[in-house]
Design a protein around this nucleic acid. Sequence first.
DNA 1: ATCCTTGCAAATGATTTGCAAGAGT
DNA 2: ACTCTTGCAAATCATTTGCAAGGAT
Lengths: 137, 137
Amino acid sequence: MKKYENMLKEHSLKATYQRMSILSVLDKMGHGCIDEVYEKVKETHPTISLATVYKNIITMVENGVITEVPIAGLKSKYELKKDDHIHLICTECGDVKDADMDDKITQDVSSVANNSSFEAKSSNVNIYGLCKNCKGA
Amino acid sequence: MKKYENMLKEHSLKATYQRMSILSVLDKMGHGCIDEVYEKVKETHPTISLATVYKNIITMVENGVITEVPIAGLKSKYELKKDDHIHLICTECGDVKDADMDDKITQDVSSVANNSSFEAKSSNVNIYGLCKNCKGA
DNA sequence: ATCCTTGCAAATGATTTGCAAGAGT
DNA sequence: ACTCTTGCAAATCATTTGCAAGGAT
């Protein structure tokens, strides 16, 4: 839990049990939408309210502790903030896996932005398709 | 309007005036969320209902006539279906511009998917930052 | 001690549904 | 003719808010 406490304090947020539980759940799940996080947190903290999950996820996104991952056709998922990377999103089961963004892509992306006089801050690459499991079925 | 009528018929959808108006509005706007489309369509078709816009956008996404563009922090926008490309999204004014996805990126993206035994169908690259206009302010 | 956060319940906002009348093929 | 679509109003679902009590620094 010390890990999550530090993440919060580094961003000048109070380290409440609720926030640390949300971070711990997201860390385990990888990616989760708001109700999934709420259900998981309730297992260890049954009195938490959905409104608290909403409020905290919003605050932690605003403060750069977690990141929103918007997905076509589904509710946004959230993940712990990390370097830009690629999301492999299964359109069958909704599972999301991370893949590293190699230097070539990073460079290409920034040159595309430069060519349009656009000042890039971050990027999000989503690939939609079928995951290993769902390909068979 | 013949253009939009064809787009619909090619996907076995009835060419109603409401659907063609939505397509025409999206074509002009480039990208629009549901209420923006609703407000624009009302200018030429004042009796259209919001529910109709919802229902049609959903049907046309399901049938591949238009595409959902999910955006962090904002409601999804929609655009006419076209080849995979890059979205430059201004976090200040919300404006979305398209940029071509060059062959390098396309190849890199597909090799990332292959390395993870993932069967890619489509991809979505969003770059967040400041557009030409908002950079100054 | 102070300010921020929590949980609750109520309020708002967004999206979906059921249905009778009308439009498209 | 037949089937799908429309517009309306109501229903549902998602998200936000106000506030008194409790927690973090």
